[in-house]
Design a protein around this nucleic acid. Structure first.
Length: 407
DNA sequence: AATCCACAGGAAGCCCGGGAAC
DNA sequence: GTTCCCGGGCTTCCTGTGGATT
């Protein structure tokens, strides 16, 4: 953001007003089509995922024969192509279903948003029912009956995809899945198959054995991409995204290498590439060099943190500020008790309600999960057990941001 | 070996706002 | 309006614990 403004002002001061856009326009000699580097873009083919696509297709083909496909769980870390594969196969399946005169519905849901039993059902209802179901308010079993009733009206096969299913289970338990996997018992005309996508390889530990056995009829694993595979993915997009010859030779391998180090995340690799290009573009350069990739890496990380911090609830901001305040005072690890003391003082000064120790402890854990601090539980023997808190975030930027917002 | 610190973190339940139905 | 539901933030009460100290 800031950098953008600088460039614009810089150009303006050097040129007449007529030349303004012309000059900026001329500088944009790097991208051909930036959209293909975004996450929302589903490419026409998915390199190094043939096995998974075939497995999935083999399982889902029974839908064309109007049989119930097995339930599936798919495992793999972020950016390993799970969602892309599912969407791709789903699209193909729906496309071909008309040819075989099969009525197939493919429903995709992201459980990061749809994260309770109620919301899952409401979402499903809104897919099939004519009447709108409110986001909250109804008894859950009423929703379930409505869903069954509406769903069963005509003959079809329904594939329900629950993306980030581990989030759903961690938050609301496995009741939803238990009910969904047994839904076929309540249906006469419709065959339902559940497809779960999980980022967490061990998420079945949270499940009832009965749910595991019915949900995990088939399993598909998405291993992380290695650097070479990432390079292939990037190369495929580079052709579409960038103008010819604007990338230094080492740029793509470097992006791939950075992303491979972070558990082979293709999304991260694409981000790196896009942001490097953007930085070069803003600087008015004609070439994207290694240097810009490094800058992009820092920028992505910093922007992420700033964005997270900005959207934090007020109490969490106060706690984070307390942590940064303590970090300023001495370099050693910070403990929960100290944070609580500083936090209480700050509350008094800003006339905010003081939360309990218990709650503050939870909020600290939340900050840890968001990745803006690191909190490790350690035992100090006679002197108790506590969390040792470290922060690795850009100190001054965040602290001034918080200071503005709190005080 | 027993003690004991300074918390962690689970369980239950309260309160509130949003929303629907009556 | 009242009366249900749901979900989220929060409190209260509680049990658990690793290892320095006694």
């Amino acid at each position: 953001m800031e950098r953008e403004r600088e460039v614009v002002i810089g150009v303006k001061s050097q040129s007449t007003l007529e030349g303004l856009f012309e000059k900026i326009y001329r500088v944009k000699a790097i991208f051909k089509n930036k959209e293909v580097l975004r996450h929302s873009h589903t490419p026409a083919n998915l390199p190094h995922r043939d096995d998974q696509i075939n497995q999935l297709a083999t399982i889902l083909v029974s839908a064309l024969r109007k049989e119930t496909p097995s339930n599936i769980i798919m495992y793999g870390k972020t950016g390993t192509g799970k969602t892309a594969v599912v969407k791709y196969v789903g699209k193909e399946l729906e496309k071909i279903s008309t040819k075989y005169d099969a009525n197939i519905n493919f429903i995709y849901m992201n459980c990061e948003v749809v994260d309770t039993q109620y919301r899952v059902l409401a979402n499903l209802c809104n897919n099939f029912c004519s009447e709108r179901v409110p986001l909250t308010g109804w008894p859950t079993d009423q929703l379930y009956s409505l869903f069954i009733e509406e769903l069963d009206k005509d003959t079809k096969v329904v594939v329900i995809v629950l993306d980030e299913i581990d989030k759903l289970v961690k938050k609301s338990g496995d009741d939803v899945l238990y009910n969904l996997t047994r839904i076929n018992n309540d249906l006469e005309n419709v065959k339902v198959s559940i497809m779960g996508i999980s980022n967490d390889l061990k998420f079945t530990e949270y499940l009832d054995p009965r749910v595991i056995s019915s949900l995990g009829e088939e399993e598909i694993i998405f291993p992380p991409y290695d650097a070479i595979q990432l390079e292939d993915i990037l190369k495929q997009r580079v052709v579409l995204a960038f103008k010819e010859g604007v990338l230094e030779e080492t740029v793509v391998p470097l992006c791939a290498a950075y992303a491979a180090r972070e558990h082979g995340d293709a999304r991260r690799a694409l981000d790196l590439l896009r942001v490097s290009g953007e930085i070069a573009e803003r600087k008015g350069e004609r070439m994207v060099t290694e240097e810009y990739v490094r800058m992009a890496k820092d920028k992505i990380e910093q922007d992420r943190i700033i964005e997270v911090v900005k959207t934090l609830p007020k109490q969490s901001k106060l706690i984070l500020y307390s942590i940064l305040h303590l970090k300023n005072e001495d370099d050693g690890p910070i403990m929960t008790g100290e944070v609580f003391e500083v936090y209480r003082e700050l509350c008094k000064r800003t006339s905010l309600d003081v939360l309990t120790h218990r709650r503050v402890s939870d909020l600290i854990s939340e900050l840890d999960m968001l990745g803006i601090i690191t909190a490790k539980v350690v035992s100090k023997g006679r002197y108790g057990r506590t969390k040792e808190i470290y922060s690795t975030i850009p100190f001054y930027r965040v602290k001034t941001l918080l200071k503005e917002e709190i005080l």
